[in-house]
Design a protein around this nucleic acid. Sequence first.
DNA 1: TCCGCAATGTGAGCGGTGCTCTTGACACGT
DNA 2: ACGTGTCAAGAGCACCGCTCACATTGCGGA
Lengths: 258, 258
Amino acid sequence: MDDDAPVTAAPVPPSAGSARERARATFTADLLAAARRQVAEVGAAQLSLRGVARELGVASSAVYRYVDSRDALLTLLLIEAFDDGGAACETAFARARAAGASAGETWIAVARAFRAWATEHRHAYELAYGTPVPGYVAPQDTVSHATRVWGVLGRVIVAAAADGDLAPLVPPADVRGLVSPAVLEFAGSLADDGRAAPGTDAEEGVVRSVVLFDALVGAVSTELFGHLHGVTTDADRLFDVTIAAAATGVGLVLRPAA
Amino acid sequence: MDDDAPVTAAPVPPSAGSARERARATFTADLLAAARRQVAEVGAAQLSLRGVARELGVASSAVYRYVDSRDALLTLLLIEAFDDGGAACETAFARARAAGASAGETWIAVARAFRAWATEHRHAYELAYGTPVPGYVAPQDTVSHATRVWGVLGRVIVAAAADGDLAPLVPPADVRGLVSPAVLEFAGSLADDGRAAPGTDAEEGVVRSVVLFDALVGAVSTELFGHLHGVTTDADRLFDVTIAAAATGVGLVLRPAA
DNA sequence: TCCGCAATGTGAGCGGTGCTCTTGACACGT
DNA sequence: ACGTGTCAAGAGCACCGCTCACATTGCGGA
């Protein structure tokens, strides 16, 4: 009631911009929320622009004023998903390290956080880490968000190297030339103190991160996609064992905090 | 030309059954072939009954005479996919063992075969091991086909135990009560000579198989779904390293054949 | 103050989808 | 030779993504 004030009133109530810009912002937010809700209910592949329009009580064509296409909407949700999962891993990492956890313990904490996020946001996980939506290719804007999880895993390896918790690979693997230069550069920027631990091979570190990533996505995907259905009586514990085995596989020593 | 013979002729030319039954069988086969082709081209989620009807030069409604629904058709293709992937693993296993390969070498051969199959039949892999098709729940008939890969991985572990190539898990994992009884029974049936190697814990063996399975699906999925895009310059070698790390993680010793 | 423009919402419409149901033709077994 | 039952066809329903011409409305400049 207070909002439709006299003619020239209220130039900048809470947010900036003209009334139109504010309306646009709030409607866009509502649209994204509705889309998020719909993805959570029926999955990304079933996301329907007409459906969100219905939910918003608006003509289906109106949605196209705010979003280029269904794919563009999917891209927004995909970025959100990557950011959400990445943030979950990042806070788990930070919290574990702040609590003095060893690199191995940190890896387990990160993996658990990732799995918890995936379980709670099943469809967001599917969107980000499941089968690519058919006919849809993720634009370049998404990769920077997708790398957040990678960054955390890389820092786990860096921390392990710094703490002396990184055993040699068994059997020794020749990783020379395996990693693309751009990724090597990205990996080089991960060490907190600006310098990698002595004797650490950056290329081998990236390979270890890849193995951890594969194990993580593999464990979560098989569980969420039903391939472990009826296999175990305690999925939580099985996940922990799986994740621990992955650590051992990359030479990440699992020891309690010092 | 020879087929549309005179009125009462040719009771049982090559296959059995009446002319109607034979026609039905061949048409069903054609239908499946067309569906297979379409899945290979555009993916399972884009499989269109109208599309296969078009390809067969038939009305879309006619397809429903031969298949209950789009989902039923998907089920047939899903079973095919599981069988195909399972067969690839089985022949790789048999071939490696026949050549005297160690359990570790056999694991690598199986993993490579699985990856090769997945790469060649991308959409079949997606159908079987990717995000479940939304709104579609795989019927019970599919599980027996899905277990073929599991059987191979289980036999890898059994072989390793028999050959003394199975190191204890590091760190030791308490796997008591982790595995469902039905799966334990299935695992018990895998030993070729009818008896598990002495000192082998069946439950722990299943857990090792799960870890291998997760690593396999994880490695293939991340690669096929684009998460390793631009990371490596040699995906084949990276896969091998990943698979070797998984073996080490479950205590599967990688040694050359005796 | 008023006018023109741009942003916005609408609804019809196009071509596509899965699926159902009626209708008519054909082949089969008796 | 004839009933019976299988079959393909096509219309139709409800949904989808997307486009476009059309009103409306709010904004900024004259």
